[in-house]
Design a binder for these strands. Structure first.
Lengths: 181, 181
DNA sequence: GCGGGTAGTGATTGGTCAATAACTTGTCCC
DNA sequence: GGGACAAGTTATTGACCAATCACTACCCGC
């Protein structure tokens, strides 16, 4: 297998492992085991653990952005907001690791920024902005509407992370499929 | 110093340490050093590391809830939303560790729930619900208004965590004092 | 001045982990 | 068939960490 292909599998494995364990709580050994290679080989493919985490973070945001873009594609303007919202809810249900990795990314950026490391945050912000802009354009480039839409998304993220069960009153008004089991 | 007082200082120290390092990234040694006691003594005051983290999480939510309650106290109904929003933004600026700890709590709950541990989440949800209800009552118990208000709060959390600098277009529409430096 | 309870420490243990260095295997080209 | 390069491994190192155990120091009532 070529190094580039291996890097791809490493990123996929890293997303799963980091999603559950976070940066510190995930060993490079665990990632290597999931990929099926030896642990030291990871350091031939990436300079260090941080680089693997960054790649996983960016990939996670890219996937989300793609889900949004696909959902909005070919849908009449007035239905785009619903289409994106439903696609995002479906993503959360079908692939809960995606939300976990997203949250892990946020705390990792916040922690890095807090100690003066801005490189990691810069890379994440760049991709995150692409996601924001994808939503913005799809919704007709209305600043307030985009902001409100994203705000509800972040609230869903939080309720989902906190494990609020289906039927809880905080979920009133959200579509059924947005609720965790 | 009494054990109860010590527990208080431990929780305060733990909030700072866990905020920056997360659960796995923070050693009990670091907490003990900040408190000024030996590391093994922490395990006389708390049964284990998890219990310290939980106490720090709950305290963090309590503080936020109190800030909200104080801000709404004695303010005319139509100004409460602004008063709470401004007080929350002030909290984020004055005490950034508070947001970090909040985010660490969210990922910790999500991770715990993902592996079938619901006790930690249950304790956090209980306190978080008190915070939600405090906002809900202050804003006049309108379900939709509360939800939108909280949603904007969660978006501010995310933008702040990602370290978006002041003046960035994503912050348009938010009050100046909500922007990180 | 002594007994008991409370606050607190030192030493240790069994385990984990990122990263480096040195070595091996396979393959393709000339 | 040999040389060169890419893919991959084993062994190791130096550091860190949660938790337990046995011990000490102080204070209070009597």
């Amino acid at each position: 297998m070529s190094a580039e292909e291996r890097r791809g599998s490493v990123i996929r494995a890293a997303m799963s492992e980091f999603a559950h364990g976070g940066y510190k709580g995930t060993s490079t050994e665990a990632i290597a085991r999931r990929v099926g290679v030896s642990q030291p080989y990871l350091f031939r493919l990436f300079p260090n653990k941080q680089a693997i985490f960054l790649a996983a973070s960016l990939r996670c945001i890219d996937i989300t952005r793609q889900v949004i873009a696909d959902a909005a594609d070919g849908v009449p303007q007035e239905e785009k907001a619903d289409a994106i919202a439903n696609a995002y809810k479906k993503l959360l249900l079908d692939d809960p690791e995606s939300l976990l990795m997203q949250m892990q990314t946020y705390v990792a950026v916040a922690s890095a920024e807090a100690v003066g490391d801005h490189e990691f945050g810069e890379a994440v912000r760049e991709r995150w902005q692409e996601m924001w802009d994808t939503v913005h354009l799809a919704l007709g480039a209305d600043v307030d509407e985009t902001k409100t839409f994203m705000a509800y998304g972040m609230l869903v993220n939080t309720l989902f992370s906190l494990g609020y069960p289906a039927g809880h009153r905080n979920w009133e008004g959200f579509h059924d499929s947005a609720r965790p089991a």
